[in-house]
Write a protein that binds this DNA or RNA. Structure first.
Ligand SMILES: NC(=O)c1ccc[n+]([C@@H]2O[C@H](COP(=O)([O-])OP(=O)(O)OC[C@H]3O[C@@H](n4cnc5c(N)ncnc54)[C@H](O)[C@@H]3O)[C@@H](O)[C@H]2O)c1
Ligand SMILES: NC(=O)c1ccc[n+]([C@@H]2O[C@H](COP(=O)([O-])OP(=O)(O)OC[C@H]3O[C@@H](n4cnc5c(N)ncnc54)[C@H](O)[C@@H]3O)[C@@H](O)[C@H]2O)c1
Lengths: 252, 252
DNA sequence: CGCGATTTGTGCACACCTTCACAAGCGCCT
DNA sequence: AGGCGCTTGTGAAGGTGTGCACAAATCGCG
């Protein structure tokens, strides 16, 4: 129930990380959240024919500060070449390796309503390292339906199928009331990562990661800034004195 | 193009907070991102019949540390009662006021493909302070279609309609290639907040806020942790020695 | 072969955020 | 009225993240 950040397992054996093989990089959370953005920008640049890219160029494409980008990349030991920049192909490989995208991960989707249908039909998964291998719903009228070549199965089959298909990630797109129950089923089935679209907090064991996407929260944050902007411009003090373009990303 | 955080307009008149009217609270970004979560939890508690709630109780329902919750609430000057807790109804009102949810904000949705249809049919907007007032698409075969009582209009009408309907927030659900052009149209129409579902970076003027939701990024972050967990358990060192449940939210 | 232009990698200072721990305040019960 | 238990609000400490500014490294060219 208590909350905890991902990184570093606060009190583990110190000085143990040096193991020669599989010495897994211990990256800051903030860096991890940006790597996918860099990856996308790199793919774009690569398709545009670039062989190398400077930190300045890549950071512009990813919408971040260039010093931050360099520090992020330095964390994963990726070596650019001074005076030249980073090799696009090499950097893509490095980031994909760190993110574990070299092995295409199996994803299952639970809840095929409004949102679930859209997700099932989304091709952005496949192109970015994931494969939806199973669809589940509790509604008998949905079970059996065929979507994008996959047949919707009853949620009771989840346990069996998850093992068969080696599912690592589960996506929850059910109403909030059902989300905790679905999460429990996923956890029992050995799934250790969950992406939750239902607007609620999930309780899961320590070894399971949950990320949440909540539309209404995003809108409410925007609403706050609207409110602020309105009250600022209404004040005599002054027009918004901000500086440059701002892009607020979604991340942890 | 450069990045900038939202908050605080660094050098404004200090000690000015005491202004009686419209003294707008200058909240930390991290706090703002959590307020919607508190709000949701409060609504749940209220429906469950609670009149007051302690910081401990509310923080548990929202999935955060209780000290953090208290500090967040103290920032907005909200007064709980020592020995008792917070008045649920009052706190809801306070948070809704700060977030600017007392006035129902008009939202438009651009791009009615797969995802756009799901969003248009989502009732979670209305119940949380927003109203979708217009739908736009560039595809002639989509224009004219009726969805949830709204008719899809051509994007060229956006400028006119945005003013008529006083649209403050625009949601982009078009392919990435069209997103920047759509953003430009929205900005020209006077929209100052954008929620972007397309996987790309948008350039907008300083006074416009952009938030992004990118599914693939969320999955890739989960993938990283899967990768990490796998390599840890594979090591002789030890089983995952983590502590408690963890919940990673989406925020700025 | 050396020089200058370029770009990386990073030390440092600062700002922001989180968490603990506890004094101050409040209500209830006797 | 007084004491007691509970809960808030916050000072202080530690951690994380950010961005500037610059030394070190590399390339290309004369
Ligand atoms: N539609 C959107 O655009 C949107 C946007 C943001 C968030 N959400 C959230 O996503 C979730 C799904 O939204 P939706 O609009 O698709 O809802 P929906 O009602 O259309 O679909 C929910 C689906 O979940 C299934 N379901 C219910 N209980 C289940 C269970 N125990 N096990 C398996 N399946 C079960 C239902 O049969 C149904 O098919 C909701 O929590 C909603 O708040 C939706
Ligand atoms: N479908 C999903 O589940 C999902 C999930 C995450 C992200 N996304 C992203 O959301 C976006 C939309 O996804 P989708 O699956 O709905 O795509 P889609 O192709 O089904 O729909 C895109 C819609 O945008 C319209 N459009 C294209 N150019 C336009 C323009 N210039 N102005 C107005 N409308 C225009 C098209 O006519 C179409 O109706 C994409 O960027 C996608 O990457 C989708």
């Amino acid at each position: 129930m208590s909350q905890q950040r991902h990184g570093s397992t606060p009190g583990n054996a110190p000085g143990e990380r040096t193991g020669a093989v599989t010495a897994f990089p211990d990256l800051p959370e903030a860096t991890i959240a940006r790597l996918p953005e860099y990856l996308r920008a790199l793919h774009n640049l690569g398709e545009a024919g670039a062989d190398t890219v400077s930190s300045e160029g890549l950071s512009a494409a990813a919408g971040v500060n260039s010093a931050k980008l360099r520090k992020d990349l330095s964390h994963l030991g990726s070596y650019g070449t001074r005076g030249v920049g980073y090799d696009v192909t090499l950097l893509i490989e490095q980031i994909e390796y760190v993110l574990g995208l070299d092995q295409r991960r199996a994803v299952c989707l639970v809840g095929l309503g409004n949102l679930g249908h859209a997700l099932a039909g989304y091709d952005g998964f496949a192109s970015r390292g994931f494969k939806i291998v199973a669809l589940f719903d509790a509604d008998a009228s949905k079970v059996g339906e065929e979507i994008q070549g996959l047949t919707v199965r009853h949620i009771e089959e989840l346990g069996r199928v998850a093992v068969e298909e080696n599912i690592a990630i589960g996506v929850i797109a059910t109403p909030a009331g059902a989300a905790q129950a679905v999460a429990d089923v996923l956890v029992d089935a050995g799934v250790t990562s969950i992406l939750n679209f239902a607007p609620c907090v999930l309780s899961v064991p320590a070894n399971v990661d949950v990320r949440k996407v909540d539309l209404a929260i995003e809108l409410q944050i925007l609403s706050f800034h609207e409110h602020r902007k309105a009250s600022l411009t209404a004040l005599p003090g002054g027009r918004s004195a901000t500086a440059a373009g701002n892009q607020e990303a979604v991340g942890s």
